[in-house]
Design a protein around this nucleic acid. Structure first.
Lengths: 330, 330
DNA sequence: TTAAAAATTGCAAACGTTTGCGGTAAATTT
DNA sequence: AAATTTACCGCAAACGTTTGCAATTTTTAA
């Protein structure tokens, strides 16, 4: 079956295409009588405007592009869920592509976005992206880019991210409040700025406000590494009374070891992490964590995007605040 | 900056638009000399074909639509990851929308897909969708639909799903092999055909091959309910030696209770579930499970889609096979 | 040398919209 | 009754491609 077009409607109604077009969008030039006729026929014939023709004519699509390292990720998928919701409300659709942390894919994805003339793109840099030229190219094309989570350092870009330092500090506060004497603090890939920021803030805070507390800092790249690290340090005579996990991945490794050794939480050891809340809720007792909500971040990013589109450029770095969520592990 | 178009290239090269167009796609009619010239200029001017113009002209977009109940879901996001990979390989992009299990959203999403003239849609029915007219409308428009996971009953549709009965039977086999005497079997929403299928297959198999084993069947709708159900049944005098969880959600509830009571797995109780593997890997020992891979399902769905597009209609129901993955919980 | 074949390139229509502008008929004002 | 305003509608160009066909030039064959 061939799609119904304005032309078809016009023919059947003995009207011009322009009249039909205007009638469908309630243009004041058109009489109510014809408007009704047009709407009636359009409905019965299931008229659906051709988005491509519209975009070609108006030079503006109603599509946003999104680049994430991986969709299958507890943080990013809640981010995506958030902007998807907002997009729908605002009449946009989403085109989602994953970089798999591969700069080459990132390039290709951007290309697809350009070819589809997206109205804007939400981008999370892949881990080791150095070259930001591609993103410059987007700006030249007047396609706004909102960076999120993993963002470039230069402040000529629009970006939203978690308040990483605050997260680390909130965690440290709670550790101090617990009266911890020996803590094992596990961080992620040391090459990532997110690991650096969190560790630095954490360490500074601890040294300043609890200089007597003994902290051991370890970097791990996976949950398996985290498990091994915890095991190694745990089996030494000096036992930790608290463990801090910078990410869900690390927490998972830690908890496996804790379960394996049948260590009592929080009696024998306190556990605290930074998370969006899903993983901490899987254990008994629930793990206390500092919340970093991908969902909130998504909402914020969307606001930024809209501001960018409507009011020209707005170059700011916004962060979404963190809050402590009490589980039962401290 | 204005986008470079064929017209622009043509002007600069003193060639016709058609020649430039053909040169860029290596049409044999064009001499190598001009081809080179055209490519050179196109490169230096960063020419990107306008996807909308192409689609308008050729009446075929290179976009697939995907509808899932929720993106933030361990199963669906691996499904999405799979078709995203394949799509990229085949020059397609993805437009992903979530229904939030709301038939109204589902309708709107389909509309967006139609307006964007997607080449095909992958659809997972929302839980209580009854009216399949909308999908008929897609077919009328020659837009193939591949259903996945939650699929319609009628077999005039193309669908891929997990081998639900097989999953349940594999689980039952392992339970029997363990020599279980009393098992608690937890299933999901009884309204969903997936729950029905799994339960029926499980029950039949058990009754046939282990009639003496005492099975208690319970339906729960959330992980909290599952936890409560496990608690309730556990606290009765008659203890279970094995528990079966139909989904990750249920497994999560069960495991919380198990941790809370500090029950030893697998010594005091055996645990087995149906899962894609992520959740079972969070516990120590890893939970044994029957694998249902969203990733595999995605690959399969994509093959079906391509077949549909290339070779006209192929109405079949394909299932991806299940396999048992040994953890340490049985 | 001339006719025919092959190699190149260009013309123009079409895809389905939107929109500035001009035109006609009806309604209102003088 | 003439002049002016208002209400309604259509023409035609444009967005950036693709593609059948015709036109031109070059090569080959006779």
């Amino acid at each position: 079956m061939t799609n119904t077009t304005l032309k078809l409607l016009a023919q059947q109604l003995q009207l011009s295409i322009s009249t039909v077009s205007r009638a469908l969008k309630d243009h004041p030039d058109i009489s109510t009588a014809t408007k009704e006729k047009v709407h009636a026929l359009a409905n019965s014939l299931d008229y659906e405007p051709n988005a491509y023709a519209i975009q070609l004519r108006t030079q503006s699509s109603k599509i946003f592009g999104v680049i994430v390292p991986a969709i299958a990720n507890l943080f990013y998928d809640s981010f995506i869920a958030a902007i998807e919701e907002e997009s729908r409300k605002n009449g946009y659709a989403l085109m989602i592509l994953q970089s798999s942390n591969n700069p080459e894919n990132e390039l290709n994805n951007l290309k697809i976005f350009r070819q589809n003339r997206v109205s804007g793109v939400f981008a999370c840099l892949s881990a080791h992206t150095q070259n930001l030229e591609v993103y410059e190219k987007m700006s030249e094309r007047d396609i706004p880019v909102v960076f999120f989570d993993i963002v470039p350092k230069e402040n000529k870009y629009t970006k939203v991210r978690m308040a990483d330092e605050r997260c680390a500090i909130i965690a440290a506060e709670n550790i101090i409040q617990r009266g911890s004497k020996r803590v094992l603090a596990l961080f992620g890939d040391p090459a990532l700025s997110i690991s650096q920021k969190r560790k630095q803030a954490f360490q500074q805070f601890m040294e300043k406000y609890a200089p007597k507390t003994h902290c051991t800092y370890v970097h791990t790249n996976s949950s398996v590494e985290a498990e091994a690290a915890f095991n190694k340090h745990f089996e030494k005579a000096l036992k930790f009374d608290t463990v801090f996990a910078m990410t869900d991945e690390i927490l998972i490794g830690v908890m496996k070891s804790i379960q394996a050794h049948n260590i009592k939480v929080p009696k024998e050891i306190g556990v605290i992490s930074i998370s969006n809340g899903f993983i901490p809720s899987l254990y008994h007792p629930n793990i206390s964590y500092v919340e970093t909500s991908g969902y909130e971040l998504g909402k914020l990013a969307f606001v930024q995007m809209l501001a960018n589109i409507k009011g020209g450029k707005t170059l700011t770095e916004l962060t979404v605040d963190a809050r402590f969520v009490e589980g039962g592990s401290m």
